[in-house]
């Protein structure tokens, strides 16, 4: 699709002092959609935060390279500037801080010329109520509205890669479809590479995936195409030794 490349090699990560991700490999090219599925406790959120560099989630081994730049050791904001975006599972409220002022800082664009217009366009594309654009970040938004807000920010920031941590939770069927359409569009629009981490199969109903990975106990135990989704739908994670 384009030249961007995200390479995760033998990644080990700790959360709360305990190793949760035990040597994970993943290669994502610009424009590809990878879905990582795993049961509760398989290390999904730790993986997401290890990629983004959340304080308290420690990478103890391996590497994360984005277009050849090593992200391990960089703080979250520098990883974001290098081209990685994380849509959080539970986006927090930031009282008094508008979406526009936060994104103006993220883009180093204090003039904000055109930013309001971009926000309005992105809001329209995913059915995010324009009235919410004037609210403080996530304040008084429902879980589903917060998820749309993450995708809206993704659309404004246009990073080469995004990691989506349970983007499907809290979204109803229509909202999930709108988000999935926007993501697929982004893969061609600017060659976005997607790593969608989820517990649920239903994301795969809406989002066309180039590769599906099954995460169990901090390792990818199986990788495949749509046939793997069908298998997971039938048997769940049982065949991987998970009840």
């Amino acid at each position: 699709m384009n030249g961007h490349l995200l390479e995760v090699r033998d990644l080990h990560a700790e959360a709360g002092g305990r190793e949760v991700v035990h040597g994970l490999d993943l290669t994502v090219r610009g424009g590809e959609v990878h879905v990582i599925m795993g049961p509760n406790g398989s290390g999904k959120s730790t993986l997401a935060h290890a990629l983004m560099g959340r304080p308290g989630t420690r990478v103890t081994g391996g590497s994360i390279r984005l277009d050849g730049v090593e992200l391990v050791g960089l703080p979250a904001w520098e990883r974001a500037r290098a081209g990685l975006f994380l849509a959080l599972q539970q986006p927090v409220e930031v009282p008094g801080v508008s979406l526009q002022s936060a994104l103006a800082e993220a883009l180093d664009q204090p003039g904000r010329a055109g930013l309001a217009q971009r926000l309005a366009e992105e809001a329209a594309s995913i059915g995010f109520d324009r009235r919410f654009l004037d609210r403080a970040l996530n304040v008084d938004l429902s879980g589903g509205e917060r998820k749309r807000n993450e995708i809206l920010q993704l659309g404004v920031l246009r990073p080469p890669f995004c990691v989506l941590d349970e983007i499907d939770s809290g979204l109803d069927v229509d909202a999930l479809a709108a988000v999935a359409r926007r993501l697929e569009q982004a893969t061609t629009e600017w060659g976005l590479g997607v790593v969608a981490i989820t517990h649920f199969h239903r994301l795969l109903v809406e989002l066309r995936a180039d590769a599906i990975h099954v995460l169990v106990d901090g390792r990818i135990v199986s990788t495949g195409g749509p046939e793997l989704a069908a298998e997971l739908e039938q048997t769940g994670y049982r065949s991987y030794g998970v009840a």
Partner: peptide, 10 residues
């Protein structure tokens, strides 16, 4: 962390 994950400097 939320703001930094968008690329806002600390």
């Amino acid at each position: 962390y939320y703001l930094e994950s968008r690329g806002v400097a600390p």
